[in-house]
Design a binder for these strands. Structure first.
Length: 259
DNA sequence: ATAGGGTTAAAA
DNA sequence: TTTTAACCCTAT
């Protein structure tokens, strides 16, 4: 009758997140046995890991106006539908592209369910599934696509996003900004400017959310966010180019329709 | 061993 | 009170 409730610490939560990112969701025993997470999660069982991950996912997924309560309350709602429109950080420049296939003209339309592995769709799906109030990190999105969707990314987006995370000998945030210019993705193009602005905007939004909503959750996460800004720039650039071509198209429409 | 459902304690 | 999170039980 001792333990009232053993709340999860930030260390344990972070360990769980990393464990899931490394081994994948579902391998709770493997994560718990992992020598890196064992010392932190020694007091937690595989079931605890699963439950905690479920709570985290549900908290991130529920968000705002999904289900009022778990039970269909018989009481009449006091006329408060609370629509809560979805907020999108992505903003298409000014392209008007309808639902037209990217560039395939000889591909046979086998089924409409899995038309083509479009990045925008998967990213949107990941965002819709995760739906974190603070915004999903690019690494999380990549991992979601690779793990939950069992889709292997041909590009090395995930690797690029995870590379700085695995390498402990990486610099801190102050190098992020200069990195962008020094990186020199190619040449000075409007895409770079917009992508950089978007990246900064996302970072600022995340930081604000963290500070405004509650106390800072984890200092490590903020630092990681700064590191991933670099990777985010590349992803944003890619997205911008695709948007400009009209390939991403219905981002707003899809978001509006909801999944 | 994992996924899901259900219960209970604590916080808002 | 409602909501959230840790805990517990059971079926696969």
């Amino acid at each position: 009758m001792g333990a009232p409730k053993q709340k999860w610490t930030s260390e344990e939560e972070e360990a769980l997140r990393r464990g899931v990112l490394k081994h994948g969701a579902g391998k709770w025993r493997t994560i718990q046995k992992d020598p890196e997470f064992s010392p932190v999660l020694s007091s937690r069982s595989n079931i605890d890991l699963k439950d905690k991950w479920r709570n985290l996912s549900f908290s991130a997924s529920g968000l705002g106006s999904r289900d009022k309560q778990r039970v269909p309350r018989p009481k009449a709602p006091s006329s408060s539908p609370s629509p809560s429109p979805q907020l999108l950080l992505l903003s298409a420049p000014n392209n008007v592209a309808e639902a037209s296939p990217p560039e395939d003209c000889e591909k046979s339309p086998q089924d409409d369910k899995t038309p083509s592995p479009k990045y925008s769709s998967m990213i949107l799906e990941a965002l819709g599934e995760l739906k974190e109030p603070n915004g999903s990190e690019v690494a999380t999105i990549c991992n979601f696509i690779e793990i939950d969707k069992s889709y292997k990314l041909t590009d090395s987006y995930a690797k690029r996003a995870l590379a700085p995370m695995k390498d402990p000998s990486l610099k801190k945030k102050d190098s992020a900004k200069s990195s962008k210019a020094a990186k020199g993705l190619g040449q000075s193009s409007p895409a770079l400017d917009a992508a950089e602005a978007a990246a900064m905007k996302v970072a600022d939004a995340e930081a604000k959310s963290h500070l405004a909503n509650e106390h800072m959750m984890e200092v490590e996460r903020i630092g990681k966010m700064a590191e991933e800004t670099e990777s985010l720039l590349e992803l944003a650039s890619e997205l911008y180019e695709r948007c400009s071509r009209g390939e991403a198209l219905t981002i707003l429409q899809v978001a509006h329709r909801e999944f």
